[in-house]
Design a binder for these strands. Structure first.
Lengths: 142, 142
DNA sequence: ATATTCCCTATATAAGTAATAGACAATAAG
DNA sequence: CTTATTGTCTATTACTTATATAGGGAATAT
């Protein structure tokens, strides 16, 4: 049931970027150092976020990444799905990557798996990047 | 966030065994065929369930496995944890395999991950093998 | 022009999952 | 007491996915 390290990298990067009050650009080297992430790996992660329209990027000196959307409009669920794929515990109950299973109609397991999927999707879907940043900010100062 | 195939095998086997009204022994070959699982792999799975005290086994002709405990006393959560390990989306919020993280106190992500863990544990913890068997049985006849 | 930074794809390495194999022990029945 | 059946246990292999590294190229600022 675990989230990948890659996804953790993505979320932590987004929090760091989202916490910047000036909405400036943050480059790979900076984020990699701050969050202790292998830079070339982080590159792939940020690129994916950029290609998904969550970050925008600028090349050249003082370039880097910044948020493309309002953090309040970015559910954590979107990031998890983007990086890790479906949140459902099994393909047979996945909304985003459903795979038909011949046992579907007689499977006693399906309902409980669907319930798990719904719970995860609800929690991660309701929580936005803005929320997460707020928590992080509060924890730092408080 | 996905459950392994191995765990799926375990749960399906338990449902098959739990559905037997006579509480008789079910051998590997039989279950493997009924559920379309590689027999030698299933062997490992059933052995783990037996060593965990969920199944009991008998060697020899007409031997096999049967439930050791009342299915109403077997939460699905126990099986998932046994086969797949912690259900938490990250080690830093795991109850069964907690790993300390230096960022713990300032991490904005932790609360939401903990919430996900709690939701999964609640759903899988409340649902017993008996419940799942009941659903399977209803689906078959209805 | 040049230095900086992102873009993209390919490849390597490590870890985890799934499956196979085989020698051994227990049990039941002839 | 021999044989067939079935579980026990550990090792090994194959496969898949996750993680990380590498490097040539394009965009941008000075």
């Amino acid at each position: 049931m675990r989230m990948s390290r890659k996804c953790d990298y993505a979320l932590r990067s987004l929090i760091l970027i989202g916490l910047d009050p000036h909405d400036g650009y943050h480059n790979i080297a900076e984020i990699a150092q701050a969050e202790d992430i292998p830079p070339k790996y982080l590159e792939q992660v940020l690129l994916a976020l950029k290609n998904a329209g969550i970050l925008s990027a600028k090349s050249g000196p003082n370039g880097g990444y910044r948020l493309q959307k309002d953090p309040a409009e970015i559910p954590v669920l979107d990031i998890v799905r983007l990086i890790d794929g479906p949140v459902a515990p099994a393909r047979c109950v996945s909304r985003t990557a459903h795979e038909k299973c011949p046992r579907e109609s007689i499977c006693g397991l399906r309902p409980v798996l669907a319930e798990v999927r719904d719970a995860i999707a609800k929690i991660l879907g309701d929580m936005t990047l803005a929320d997460v940043c707020r928590k992080a900010s509060a924890a730092k100062s408080g």
